[in-house]
Every structure is written in structure tokens, then in C-alpha cells.
Design a protein around this nucleic acid. Structure first.
Length: 554
RNA sequence: GCGCUCGUAGCUCAGGGGAUAGAGCGCUGCCCUGCGGAGGCAGAGGCCGGAGGUUCGAAUCCUCCCGGGCGCACCA
């Protein structure tokens, strides 16, 4: 990308200045280039002179001047200037910027070519909501972040595997099964009470009804008897079908649905991990339970692996799960995306990862702050145990998939978020996603109209794109690689929504200032059509990365 | 109490060592005799929670304080 070429120019200038004796020899810090806030300061700016003035024992302005004098010529750079207090500023050549419209338009959805992953594998695990209830709004945020991150890392040269971890073992599943059986009995006319701490939602009755539809009274036991232990699993399977469908509605598709229960197979990951920890002397029996002496690894306390009733904790199975990710399946990197209420779990899991022989640095846990759902001033409780459950499906049906995803991606993961359903509904026409999509549709419309009048971009001379609005738009197009890189390095997909709005804004501004189709100016028409093609490609690419449609018309 | 995180325009949020701090919504005023007005242009609106410190330079880094959120289970 062009920014890295500017960085290289600065590095070369530094070496050349030192070789020429204009600057003393010293080891320079890593060179960076940034975008000045004000256009008169150029397109890129380097602050090296300010940073090395001490090492060079020269005034920053003198250092900057020495660098400027040694910057090699480059077709993309029109001029290089020095500005107080010691910046070296780079100005893009308008003709070069314009020529990139050709490059971008012909690359299409292959733009930008960015390789940060180098083919390394990364697993992204997200949502992984308990299958004891439907996917709710908070999970939707994880879904939007996770699937967008998957798209973005794929675009950056990683081999991405997307996974959903199914919590189909443990105490909650048992309670789920007992609740379900009570509902099943009720549907067969029996008096049966939903257990205390059970799941009161209407959806449990629906699931029981589905089982009744499929199997009749086949799973009914004698009155007073408990259900077959496998009964709950029928319900879990039905829940998972629903979860899969709901997530598909927001454009989420997994490569793997991984069962927690499968970890427990004889000789499986769970047994292996317990043996490893035991062999390393990191396991101790205390108060009838089995503990991991994680405080020896710097944790604030030890943690229970096996409860006194013999059941493994989810922490123990999570260590086994990560052992399977890193050691068995050999992912180079793993990104777990969790709600911020799991924050206390992060360092524990990393300790477990380390203890079982993997590199905790290869694990990134991306926490997103919880979503508060509102209807106007009323806070709607999200708890699966509460009466009203606002599901992700409800939200999508109210505001649409594109707006839902865009909204979730609008704020950084560390920011708490209010999702006001009334507002989202009422303002759906003013949602920023439409601003971006409108730009795409508008371009499609102009290109179609041009074609109908016999204009195409064939043989366009991009050197004609000299208007200020055209140049501004071109610079936005050139920004996508940097945005993509930032999203990957920071695991922060929200940069895409902001970029998309900036790009759409630059287009709309261009559109009102520069008429594209002009019968008496066929050459200019061609070059502007080429610019439109490039813009449309970048808009479609950006929307595509976010899992949002790029409509031809609205 | 301890840990993580957040505090930026009236509201929702970007920016996370650089030059005069940005966007959207809302508010004021303009722009359709030419491609889609779901648009554009201009304006008002800020001691970047507070106080110290580091630095040539701090909204950004460090310390303390204030205020919100979330954790600190033999739940997940």
C-alpha cells in the first residue's frame, strides 16, 4: 500500500542522508507515516525528525531538511516539504492517485491485496451461546463482530476457521432437560411442574411440542419417573437447529459446530489435559474437589477443575477445549470472542493454555461490552430466565439484517452499547447503513444510464481526474488497505463502518460537484465512469466485509 | 475491597503520542429549469470527568481522585 511506500522512502532518505554525512550515524526508531489532519500538510507526514533530534544532536528542522533533501524520487509523490516543528510532509501526485482508479477498478473485489497472515491459520470462535435458550440481542453483537473479523482476516491472508462451541454438557443442560420433560408431560395432559431454577420461556413449550410432533408419547415414562437422560439432548438438537437458522439470518455461517460433550470421550482432550496437569504436579485434592494450582502460575487463586460431586467445571472443559485447538488441531492463532461478563475467565484460560503446552500469546480473547436493550426509556431484560426474551431474530425482523449488523459494528467492542428498539425501528430510514448503500445504488444507476446512452469507461484517461472532489474521493479509495490492516491488527472491525461512511460521503460530495455523463465531453465522461467503477468496487468490498448487502437499487 | 473497562459537542460515538480534536443524529440557514434530495453546502455547539507527572509535543502514556459498567462460585 502507498503508506508503506512512503515509509520506505523515509527509511531510504535516512540511510542516504547518513551515508552522505548530512546526518550522524545512529540506530533510528521504527519509521511510521500518518495522515495529517489538515490537507495543506500533505497526504502523509513523518515525524522521525522530531523523534531523532536528540540522537542526531541537531535541531528537528535541520534533521527534517536533511531527510527531505535525500528522499528518492517516486512516481506517486509530487513533492516533499518540511514544516515546523520538524515534520516531513509528502504530497501525492494527482495523476498517480487518478491512475489508481484503473488499478482498483480492474482488481475489483480482489482489492486490497493485503497479506498479514501469510497463510497462517486462525480459528475464530464466537457466539457459542448456551443451547438452553434462543440467541438474544447481546449474542448478536458477538455474531457481527466475529463474522466480520473472519471476513477481514481472510482478506488479510489468514486461513480462517469459524467455530461455534456447543455447551451441551454440564448442569444447565440437565436443568434444561428436566424443564423440557415437564413441558412434554404437560403436553400429554399430565400435571408436571417446571423445576425450580428451570427455564420458564415459551420456547421450551415449543420445543416440547416439536418432540411430541416427531415422537408422540414415545419418550414418556411412567408418571413420577424421570426422563431418560438422553431426552434433554433431543431438545438441545432442536435448539441448535434454531440457533443455526437465527445466525444464518444475520449472515453467519460456521465451519464447525464443536460439541463440549465430545471433549469428554474416553481418552479424549479432557482426559489428556487432566493427565498432563497431574503429571506436572499442578493438581491437588482439597475439600473433596480437584483443584488446579493456578496461583503458582501467577493467578490470583486456585481454581476447581472437578467439583466434589465428580462433575468437571466448565473451566476444566475449557482448558481441554483449548488444548484441542492448539495442540491437536494446531491452529497458529485462536481468537475467542466473549461477552465482557467473562472477563474474569481470560487469564485463567491463558494459564490453562500455558500449562498444557501451548503459547498463551497465540490466544486473543476479544471481549465486547454487554448490550443494554431498550424500548424507549424502558430497559428490557435479556435474561433467558426472564419472561420476555427479545431474540436476535426479533431484532432482525424489526430492523433488518443489514442495519442490525451495521449498528453492532458501529462502536468499538470496549464500548457499552444501548440498543433502542424503538429508535432503531423509527429511524430505520435514517440509519447510516442506508447512506452507504445509497451511494452504491446511486453509482449503479449512473453507470446503467451511461451505458444506455452509449457511454462506457473503455479507454478512459484517468489523468483527467483533477477536480478537488475527484482527488478527495481517490484518496479515500486508497485508504481501504490501511483500514483493513488496522481492523486486523487491533481485532477491531468497527473501523470498517466509519470508513464506509467516509467513503460514501466523499462520493456523494463528488457526485453533486462533478457531473459524470456529459455528451459533449466524452473523454471526461469515460474517466469519471472509471472512477465510479472503482468507487463502487470499494463500497461493495467494504460492505461485503461487514456482511452487508450492496444493493444495485433501493 | 481487589481486578478489567469506559468517561470526548445536547444525544450516539470515532480518534488512543503530533500541527487549529472529528462524524452521524438533533438545531439554524441555504441548494432540485442536469445522472437517484435516502443527497449536497454553510453555521452554531467542546477547559476531551478532575488534579498532578513524563515529553520538543498529551484527548492519547504514568500516578492519584471522582463517576458509570462488568467481574472476583465446587454457575456458564
Amino acid at each position: 500500500m502507498i503508506r508503506d511506500e512512503v515509509v520506505a522512502l523515509v527509511e531510504q532518505a535516512l540511510a542516504a542522508a547518513q551515508a552522505a554525512g548530512a546526518l550522524p550515524e545512529f540506530a533510528a526508531p521504527a519509521i511510521t507515516a500518518e495522515h495529517p489532519a489538515r490537507p495543506e500538510h500533505g497526504d502523509f507526514s513523518s515525524n522521525v525528525a522530531l523523534r531523532i533530534q536528540g540522537m542526531a544532536r541537531m535541531k528537528a528542522l535541520e534533521v527534517a531538511e536533511a531527510l527531505r533533501a535525500h528522499v528518492p524520487a517516486h512516481p506517486a509523490i509530487e513533492k516533499v516539504t518540511v514544516a515546523v516543528p520538524g515534520f516531513v510532509n509528502f504530497y501525492l501526485a494527482p495523476a498517480w492517485a487518478a491512475s489508481q482508479a484503473d488499478a482498483i477498478a480492474s482488481a475489483g473485489q480482489a482489492y486490497p491485496a493485503l497479506d498479514l497472515g501469510g497463510g497462517r491459520s486462525v480459528q475464530i470462535e464466537y457466539v457459542s451461546a448456551n443451547p438452553t435458550g434462543p440467541v438474544h440481542v447481546g449474542n448478536g453483537r458477538g455474531a457481527a463482530i466475529g463474522s466480520t473479523l473472519a471476513n477481514v482476516m481472510t482478506a488479510a491472508g489468514y486461513r480462517v476457521q469459524q467455530e461455534y462451541y456447543i455447551n451441551d454438557a454440564g448442569t444447565q443442560v440437565g436443568i434444561f432437560g428436566r424443564t423440557l420433560y415437564a413441558r412434554y408431560e404437560q403436553l400429554h395432559g399430565r400435571e408436571a411442574a417446571v423445576p425450580e431454577n428451570g427455564y420458564p420461556g415459551q420456547y421450551m413449550i415449543d420445543v416440547a411440542q416439536k418432540i411430541k410432533d416427531r415422537f408422540g408419547d414415545q419418550h414418556l415414562r411412567a408418571p413420577g419417573e424421570d426422563a431418560d437422560p438422553a431426552f434433554g439432548r433431543l431438545g438441545i438438537d432442536i435448539m441448535i437447529e434454531g440457533i443455526r437458522d437465527d445466525l444464518a439470518l444475520v449472515g453467519v455461517e460456521y465451519d464447525e459446530w464443536y460439541s463440549e460433550r465430545s471433549l469428554m470421550a474416553h481418552g479424549g482432550p479432557y482426559d489428556t489435559v487432566m493427565a498432563i496437569l497431574k503429571n506436572q504436579g499442578q493438581v491437588v485434592e482439597r475439600d473433596g474437589a480437584t483443584w488446579f494450582t493456578s496461583s503458582d502460575l501467577g493467578e490470583s487463586k486456585d481454581n476447581v477443575l472437578v467439583r466434589s460431586d465428580g462433575a468437571p467445571t466448565y473451566y476444566a472443559t475449557d482448558i481441554a477445549y483449548h488444548y484441542d485447538k492448539f495442540i491437536t488441531r494446531k491452529f497458529d492463532r485462536v481468537v475467542d470472542i466473549w461477552g465482557a461478563d467473562h472477563q474474569g475467565h481470560v487469564s485463567r484460560v491463558k494459564a490453562g493454555v500455558q500449562a498444557t503446552g501451548a503459547d498463551p500469546e497465540a490466544l486473543d480473547v476479544l471481549l465486547y461490552q454487554l448490550v443494554t436493550l431498550r424500548r424507549g426509556d424502558l430497559v428490557v431484560p435479556l435474561s433467558k430466565r426472564a419472561g420476555e426474551i427479545v431474540t436476535l431474530r426479533d431484532v432482525i425482523e424489526e430492523v433488518g439484517r443489514d442495519a442490525t449488523r451495521f449498528f453492532f459494528l458501529l462502536t468499538g467492542a470496549n464500548q457499552t452499547m444501548d440498543f433502542d428498539l424503538d429508535l432503531a425501528k423509527k429511524q430505520s430510514d435514517e440509519n447510516p447503513v442506508y447512506y452507504v448503500q445509497y451511494a452504491h445504488a446511486r453509482i449503479a444507476s449512473v453507470i446503467a444510464k451511461a451505458a444506455a446512452e452509449g457511454h462506457t469507461s473503455a479507454g478512459a484517461d484517468t489523468a483527467l481526474l483533477t477536480h478537488e472532489a475527484e482527488q478527495t474521493l481517490l484518496r479515500k479509495l486508497l485508504l481501504l488497505p490501511e483500514v483493513l490492516e488496522k481492523a486486523v491488527l487491533e481485532l477491531a472491525p468497527h473501523h470498517l463502518t466509519h470508513y464506509a461512511q467516509e467513503l460514501a460521503g466523499a462520493f456523494h460530495s463528488f457526485y453533486t460537484q462533478c457531473r459524470v455523463i456529459q455528451a459533449d465531453q466524452p473523454a471526461l465522461t469515460k474517466s469519471r465512469l472509471r472512477l465510479l467503477e472503482a468507487t463502487q468496487a470499494v463500497l461493495a468490498r467494504t460492505l461485503g466485509l461487514m456482511g452487508i448487502t450492496a444493493p444495485e437499487q433501493m
